[in-house]
């Protein structure tokens, strides 16, 4: 900011602005650096396997043959389970926090949900491996196997660890994020709009279903995508409970793997250049997917913010 006749100030201001701009540029450099390094390290694997990498089920460090199919599918399946469980639950939790509960209840509940988000991934992993997986093996999986055995999804021995357990724990982990954003979306819908709904005699559910939901639809989608991005990249909790097996199975009781769990398990020990490169290519795939989802989520959330900011 240069002011006429005030050169005494302009030097300090220029320097300050320069330093701040340099710090800002670091954010860009890191982002560009991540892309550059991921692509650079994947080159070997990209040249060797091409697009076949995405569809190949092979994963054999001895023969040097790698494919991403089981990791990608495992990531998608565990995330799908998590989303199926977490999105509806979060919707109703957000509804409770924003509309239904008295302020005191809403505050305490909101606080608890926030703490659920603060618990680190590795704690979910410990609890999942030593507490929840045995519970699944003893109670939930035998029950599902008995009553839903007509579905191939619930076949196989109840081992506790596996795709289903990983999906449930993921659901638990993304639930607080989705609920928090959805709650914000609900409270962002202008009170006059809701009051108009109540004014014509709507019940809470009717106002939610026919007024709040259509009004905040973009925000609800954005919140869900935020949770989706988190679930796809979640690493430690999944690594603890998924069983880490490069195999594709119809049964959700079976052990599997995800991109993140494969990286967590194998990267530090990989020494063969092609092995390292294949793992980094997995990382590149994960990076690309989460980046796109992040952008979509921001697009929708800013859409609802703009709509609210612009008034009715």
């Amino acid at each position: 900011m240069k002011q006429a006749g005030n050169t005494r100030h302009s030097k300090g201001d220029f320097l300050f602005k320069l330093i701040a701009a340099a710090c800002t540029a670091i954010l860009l450099l890191v982002m560009a650096g991540i892309m550059f390094q991921l692509v650079r390290y994947s080159t070997l694997s990209l040249q060797q396997f091409g697009f076949g990498f995405l569809t190949s089920e092979a994963w054999n460090p001895v023969t040097g043959d790698y494919g991403a199919a089981s990791s990608i599918l495992g990531t998608l399946v565990s995330t799908a389970i998590a989303m199926l469980l977490a999105v509806p639950t979060s919707f109703f939790i957000a509804l409770l926090l924003a509309e239904l509960a008295p302020p005191a209840v809403s505050k305490v509940t909101g606080y608890a949900i926030e703490l659920l988000a603060a618990i680190p991934s590795i704690i979910y992993g410990m609890w999942g491996l030593f507490v929840f997986a045995p519970f699944m093996a003893d109670r939930v999986q035998p029950f599902l196997g008995k009553h839903l055995s007509f579905l191939p999804l619930f076949h196989g021995p109840p081992m506790g660890i596996g795709m289903l357990t990983a999906g449930i724990i993921l659901a638990l982990m993304i639930l607080p994020f989705i609920s928090a954003v959805m709650r914000d979306v609900f409270t962002m819908v202008p009170a006059v709009v809701k009051e108009a709904g109540y004014g014509v005699g709507g019940s809470t559910w009717e106002v939610t279903r026919y007024v709040t939901m259509p009004y905040g639809f973009a925000g609800i989608l954005g919140a869900s995508f935020l949770g989706l991005g988190r679930a796809l990249g979640e690493t430690m909790a999944v690594t603890f409970v998924i069983g880490n097996k490069h195999a594709i199975s119809v049964s959700l009781f079976a052990a599997g793997n995800t991109i993140a769990s494969t990286l967590a398990n194998e990267f530090a020990e990989a020494s063969e250049p092609l092995y390292v490169s294949s793992l980094v290519e997995l990382g590149l795939i994960l990076f690309a997917i989460t980046l796109i989802i992040q952008i979509i989520s921001h697009f929708w959330l800013s859409k609802i913010r703009d709509a609210v900011g612009a008034g009715l």
Binding site: G33, Q37, Y41, G283, T290, I293, H298
Partner: peptide, 26 residues
Amino acid sequence: LATCARFAANSLVGIPSIIVGLFVYA
């Protein structure tokens, strides 16, 4: 610069932390 950096910051927040590990390794 600010617009791009804001975009980068928002994207970085959502990137799985294991990817950051890969980047620092490389």
